[in-house]
């Protein structure tokens, strides 16, 4: 029986088994999981950001994000895939959150090259470079509108070869088991009008990635 079968496709035994698992999950697992969570909220000017929505930018411009995906990790979940579009990815495992915690940004060269192709490493998530072994650490795309014209932009930032390694650790502040990522600084650092696409590791990608990491408090 496929795990992806719909409820009405299950036989009685299978359905009862699922219900039992669900109840056990509610009673035993769910409280533990809530306790062990770290939430990640992406903000712009103090409000949660939404994909596809036009936002004021600089003094007279506006900006829209169409995609925001990145890798981040905690000491209990070293490599976590975050996709702004998928709220299920907005929670990381962290067993003992305090006022601050160590976060991992990107992944090291071993994680990039070990050849695991499942879980957060599944190329299906769209983060595998393909032309090159390894993973894009952050994908961000959208459109900037100025008073004169629009500028579609797309950045695929990453790299694990010296000296342009996009892998950092940083202590960040928590509020009620939540980390707030404020995107203003990172978006302002993107060279959208000069270089609207960066698709390869290198000095520019490395610098921008540092701006991204700086966005975490």
């Amino acid at each position: 029986m496929s795990m992806s079968a719909l409820p009405w496709e299950l036989n009685t035994f299978e359905a009862m088994k699922r219900v039992t698992h669900f109840l056990f999950g509610l009673v035993l697992i769910a409280p533990w999981e809530i306790w062990a969570q770290l939430n990640l909220r992406v903000l712009y000017r103090l409000a949660p950001i939404t994909l596809g929505k036009r936002l004021p930018f600089n003094s007279n411009d506006s900006i829209q994000l169409d995609q925001l995906k990145f890798y981040i990790g905690t000491k209990d979940e070293k490599v976590h895939f975050f996709d702004l579009e998928d709220s299920l990815t907005h929670t990381l495992i962290l067993h003992q959150p305090e006022d601050s915690t160590l976060l991992y940004f990107g992944m090291d060269s071993l994680a990039n090259t070990q050849g695991r192709l499942d879980g957060p490493f599944d190329p299906l998530l769209g983060m595998y470079w393909a032309w090159n072994t390894g993973y894009i650490q952050i994908k961000i795309s959208g459109v900037l509108w100025t008073s004169i014209q629009s500028f579609p932009f797309e950045y695929h930032l990453g790299g694990y070869r010296h000296p342009y390694i996009t892998h950092y650790q940083k202590m960040v502040s928590l509020h009620n088991r939540t980390v707030h990522l404020s995107l203003e600084g990172f978006l302002s650092a993107l060279p959208i009008q000069d270089q609207p696409k960066i698709m390869m590791p290198g000095p520019r990608a490395w610098t921008l990635y540092q701006h991204f990491v700086s966005s975490f408090p």
């Binding site: 090259t113 050849g115 190329p123 595998y128 470079w129 393909a130 032309w131």
Partner: peptide, 24 residues
């Protein structure tokens, strides 16, 4: 550019000049 045989085939499958498909 590709370091392991297990991941190699992603490139030809998804490259627009080769098989032009998506993993999905």
């Amino acid at each position: 550019g590709v370091l392991g045989l297990n991941g190699q085939a992603i490139n030809p499958i998804t490259h627009p000049d080769e098989m032009g498909s998506t993993l999905e």
